[in-house]
């Protein structure tokens, strides 16, 4: 039956070690090991393209072991080749948090977030200019990332990164590359509120400022204007939608 054949192919390609029974079922041990190699080489290639610094930090063999472990859970669920590294990262980052140097998981999160932003969907269309009365529209290729280590700073130090928390806005720039801005906690909360888009700008500014015990003073307004200008200039903030009447 074709279903049995397909399952045997899956096990041969993704199990830690292909079983002799499956290889016999499929009919040619040598040639099905060729398929196993072709399938795995392609997947490893795209993962290494997405996580080059993580690979350099933990080593080729260590990355290979965790890819093997992930594949042995059955293989990628995504039909999109570009999303294969995201599935590996979702599997590996919790493990790296527990077993690797403390900054490795942050580095992998930074790299996979940058990869995701590069390949994010096209922007939604806003139907109004940005103002305090609209619900803001933020570009799709924007992510707020809270890190315990400044792994965005390169090159990677010989002894790794010391703990030094930072919040980044990672976004797709005009050249379609991932770029980042360092945000303070209030700006990060504002941007996340604007990404949700369920409040007007005015509502979100008042709520977030109150959460941070911050007065809406002239100095605050000036900083907020600078932030908004930067976001608009970088294509992070696209405009807005008029709130429902």
């Amino acid at each position: 039956m074709l279903a049995d054949t397909a399952k045997a192919m899956q096990r041969v390609c993704f199990d830690s070690e292909p079983s002799e029974a499956d290889l016999e079922l499929l009919g040619s041990r040598e040639r099905w090991l060729v398929y196993r190699s072709l399938v795995r080489t392609r997947l490893v290639g795209v993962i290494e393209a997405a996580l080059p610094r993580t690979k350099a930090a933990i080593g080729h063999e260590s990355l290979g072991r965790i890819i093997d472990e992930w594949l042995s859970t059955g293989g990628p669920r995504t039909r999109y080749f570009r999303n294969v590294p995201n599935e590996l990262a979702n599997f590996a980052i919790p493990m790296w948090r527990d077993t690797a140097e403390p900054w490795i998981a942050d580095l992998a999160r930074y790299e996979i977030t940058s990869w995701s932003v590069r390949h994010a969907p096209p922007n939604r269309i806003s139907d109004a200019a940005f103002s305090f009365e609209v619900r803001p529209v933020v570009a799709t290729a924007v992510a707020v990332l809270r890190l315990d280590h400044r792994v965005n700073e390169t090159p990677t130090p010989e002894d790794g990164y010391e703990r030094d928390p930072v919040i980044l806005c990672i976004h797709r720039n005009q050249e379609h590359r991932a770029s980042h801005l360092v945000l303070n906690p209030l700006a990060a909360d504002l941007l996340e509120a604007w990404q949700r888009g369920d409040e007007t700008v005015s509502e979100s500014v008042h709520r977030v400022a109150a959460t941070h015990d911050t007065q809406i003073s002239p100095a605050f307004i000036e900083k907020l204007s600078t932030l908004i200008t930067t976001f608009i200039h970088r294509g992070i903030l696209l405009g807005g939608h008029a709130p429902p009447s």
Binding site: L2, T5, K7, M9, Q10, C13, R42, G75, T78
Partner: peptide, 22 residues
Amino acid sequence: CLGQAGDRFFHDLLPLPFTEEA
């Protein structure tokens, strides 16, 4: 070809058996 088994994708083109069923 066969590119998927269950909800998992091979990201490669694996051969179908050349049978009536396939």
